[in-house]
Design a binder for these strands. Structure first.
Lengths: 219, 219
DNA sequence: AGATTGTTTTAGGAATACCTAAATTTAATA
DNA sequence: TATTAAATTTAGGTATTCCTAAAACAATCT
């Protein structure tokens, strides 16, 4: 049986794999804010129960059972996020936290109804694809990290990482949100920070920040 | 600290007290579907933590701390129920179960937003009052149990107990839902069952059922 | 290769919230 | 009042999920 706790592990694993990140025990410990020892134990359990395969130091892969479960969770999470944002008007940087709680407490039926209510959205407010009921994950255009944009290039924000609500809050403040157009004005070699223009205003962003924003290049 | 489990106890206690029912340990055990032993233990804890006062065989009373918590929970529960029913169109007899899960996983902020979205409803779809943010509970007109209606009397359904989703489903089937008008056509002395007319159709209802429906008498 | 650093596991515990079975206490009834 | 019935508690366990500290192991750097 899958519990709230196991669900958290599966979701975190899936989300990182989705971004092409190697998932090991300590990454999970850090993201879930629990001890390495606890993660080690839980990974053994999840592995015994055939949710995933785990080679220490080499990373985790989800097995069919785990993937199905994880996709379901991510679906729930993103449908709630979209709903909270689009329908209830919960601020952009708050929806992730709220959805994290709701995703464990709603029936499949309710999720399907919410989806229908919103007319089957494909992407959540952070630009992540919403898996469909049948497990299909909408494809996204190939995106480039903002940190990899060259000077004078422009683009549209299509996706942002939603790990930190403080980051999201800041993005919101400077207007760097989904769909917005921006241009790179300047790039500093010593720290890779850049100055970008959004809606006729210039903002300086750090490399760290720029690595969490994905955009479609405009040529 | 209050956990999901403690919240369940507090909600059940509050709901029964609200209906003027004496709440003892075995009632809770039955309604939460857990052993008497577990309830006994938990009541000791909740009592130590000043959520309630408990005199064995004499019943439970909520103390200030417990009442505040319970009212908050009931508020959450009923706001979710109303939302699911009115906005998402989840069937009447399914909302209670769904809300039971959601009530533990939503912030105060979200609850307030849902309330605002619906324009501050006073009663949930089963006719129960929705406590306001400040703890005030909307008053209801004095209601009479359907089982106490005499032959030839008519009334409007104003409240139904939502313990059993099967009961609700049945009420839904025969059209005995909030706001509906009915008349008592016949009453049988040997088992206290009655025949009532709803929307020009006659239905036989048991005493048990009639004890769970509350109505406003029409004179 | 050896030392250092980072990752993972083990050992031993704690908290929460359940369980069954048996004992005890109280209330209701004959 | 004595007995029976019902409600409650105790005793002894279990499962889950987390913890810290220490040990073991693997990868990387010099």
């Amino acid at each position: 049986m899958s519990t709230v706790s196991k669900e958290d592990y599966l979701r975190v694993i899936y989300k990182n794999l989705e971004d092409g990140i190697l998932v090991n025990a300590s990454l999970i410990a850090e993201q879930l804010q629990i001890s390495n020892a606890a993660v080690s134990e839980m990974l053994r359990k999840l592995s015994n129960e055939k949710y995933l395969s785990y080679v220490p130091y080499r990373g985790i892969q989800l097995l069919q059972k785990g993937k199905i479960e994880a996709v379901k969770l991510v679906r729930r999470h993103r449908i709630w996020e979209t709903f909270l944002y689009e329908v209830i008007k919960v601020p952009w940087y708050k929806i992730d936290e709220e959805a994290e709680n709701l995703e464990h407490s709603s029936s499949d039926d309710l999720i399907d109804r919410l989806e229908g209510f919103m007319n089957n959205p494909e992407f959540d407010p952070h630009g992540h694809p919403i898996p469909r009921k049948n497990g299909f994950v909408p494809k996204q255009k190939k995106l480039v990290k903002l940190s990899e944009f060259k000077v004078n290039k422009s683009g549209f924000v299509r996706k942002v990482n939603d790990q930190s609500s403080e980051l999201l809050h800041h993005l919101f403040e400077i207007g760097l949100t989904i769909g917005k157009k921006f241009s790179v004005i300047e790039k500093r070699n010593f720290d890779n920070s850049m100055v970008i223009e959004i809606e006729n205003r210039n903002h300086t962003v750090s490399e760290k920040l720029a690595q969490n924003v994905f955009a479609e290049i405009l040529r």
